[in-house]
Nucleic acid binder design. Sequence first.
DNA 1: TTGTAGGCGTTATCAC
DNA 2: GTGATAACGCCTACAA
Lengths: 318, 318
Amino acid sequence: MANIRDIAQMAGVSVTTVSRVINNHPYVSEEKREAVIQAMEKVNYQVNRTAVNLSQGKTHLIGVVVPFARHPYFGLLIEGVAKQAMERHYHFVLIQTNYEGSREWEALNMLKHKQIDALIICSRTLALDEIERYQQYGAIVVCENATGNQYVDSVYIDHYQSFTDALTYLHQHGYQQIGYCIGRQSGSNSYFRHQAYQDFLKRYPQQEFIFTDNYYFEDGQKIVDEIMQLRVKPDALLVSCDIVAAGIFTAVQNIGIEIPNDLALIGFDNQPMSKMMGITTFEVPIVTMGERLFIHALGEAETSHEKLAVTLIERKTV
Amino acid sequence: MANIRDIAQMAGVSVTTVSRVINNHPYVSEEKREAVIQAMEKVNYQVNRTAVNLSQGKTHLIGVVVPFARHPYFGLLIEGVAKQAMERHYHFVLIQTNYEGSREWEALNMLKHKQIDALIICSRTLALDEIERYQQYGAIVVCENATGNQYVDSVYIDHYQSFTDALTYLHQHGYQQIGYCIGRQSGSNSYFRHQAYQDFLKRYPQQEFIFTDNYYFEDGQKIVDEIMQLRVKPDALLVSCDIVAAGIFTAVQNIGIEIPNDLALIGFDNQPMSKMMGITTFEVPIVTMGERLFIHALGEAETSHEKLAVTLIERKTV
DNA sequence: TTGTAGGCGTTATCAC
DNA sequence: GTGATAACGCCTACAA
């Protein structure tokens, strides 16, 4: 494959001139430009991006860390990132961690080794102060409330507030035994939601119902099975993601539990599926969040920490 | 940031020696190795992968082209690719095309510009002979029957056969008005399925029912709406992906259509969701397919074209 | 076992 | 306008 020197020789100019025409820089006469273009076309010249990267000290690549790539929530987040990446002529390396710390380290090391320019961590298991240290190698953005942290940027929604709003809404509609379903128990976002739940329980004492490790549609069945084992059952459920809510909605139909009379449901994210099933949910601007994460990764955001608003969509499950 | 030369100087050795210890090459005395390691630790030395890439002419990166990253089918495919990539210390750049040709060109150009070593095309809209030409820049693997093509590798399942099997199975169970639901009409895999359907109709004449542009759960509702408009309705549906079948299954419950009596359903892929809902489906080894795609991309496959087997999982919707 | 020197393909800084 | 030439950071004959 021809390189820039070959082209220079063929066109009878210097590599500088060739570089200028490649990058549309000024100060090159029309004849020489023409000659260079001729030469490039003749041998089907293509720039080697690796060389450009080395020379510029940039890769035009950012890393995106997700626990599960095929979860609808992260799917939308990725979509947002991809959208901005494309517009700005960037690409991204997807790193699925399954919440294994070693994979997160690997992503961090890619930053260290200059394989990527910046890193977006959509969800993490490593401690934030471990992650912070890698900020010296490139921008790091997390998708959780990291307000006050001076090393990493963050884009997030106020999970405490939205959970509180949802609980209050259910309470106002007369529900008295409210539980919630979530993915993992640990994690920053889960923490805020749990806090909201605990604070709500202080105001309106009732039994606690928490269902954990729920990520996918089929986990809805699992939750319903668990509920059926209970002597005292919840009469309303806050479900951290729509697809699980849809699973509950479906699983419940065969066993004579009526929604919303016997059981109310509030989902999160406003995935298309919840619309079709008429599930009351919170609209979370996930795609926008992905886009903003990317903007922060490029260091083009005005503020370090950015909160996005959510809105309740009232449908038929409350 | 320190480079290999700095380390060499600090340790009082040559860059060659440093390179040797970095890459665990033989022929370096214990003392020198120790000195180098000391120096590296002292300044927290990290290799610059871009430089390694340029020097070796490899990026250790492969491109993965999908139309929609958050579709469950492609999600599983990506999972398979990711699995192998991790084991072999590769990473991958995800390119979502939305079936826009320009995005596919972009992926092809990444190969040309040596930003990636190889390219996996999970689904395409560009013509295969356009794609073929880029094979000179790196291995290209497609996820469709490309038997006989000498430029690109392929990993695929026999859609003609599985569709034929499914149609026959439905026929044997007494269904007489069989239709099918699919994503896009064009595309190689769709072509084979359509052929199977046409050939079946020749053997057992009946009205034709084809529902296109169905990708997600909510499209099930769309299909059911369309069916309700029909004077003559299908009594069985072959659905090219489980999630759509699940959507149909759900949409049908409110309008008094009984499954499988009024309408039989056969899905594809055996996604967890179909298990939960008891949907009869074909088990397609999607994750394995992703893994094999990766192996082919690395040029480590024994044959150029590889067919994977599918099996029918009988459940309650036929 | 070790080191020298050239190469990988660009970009960027000067001087002309 | 144009062109040497030195980075960028690493690898690898080849020589010693």
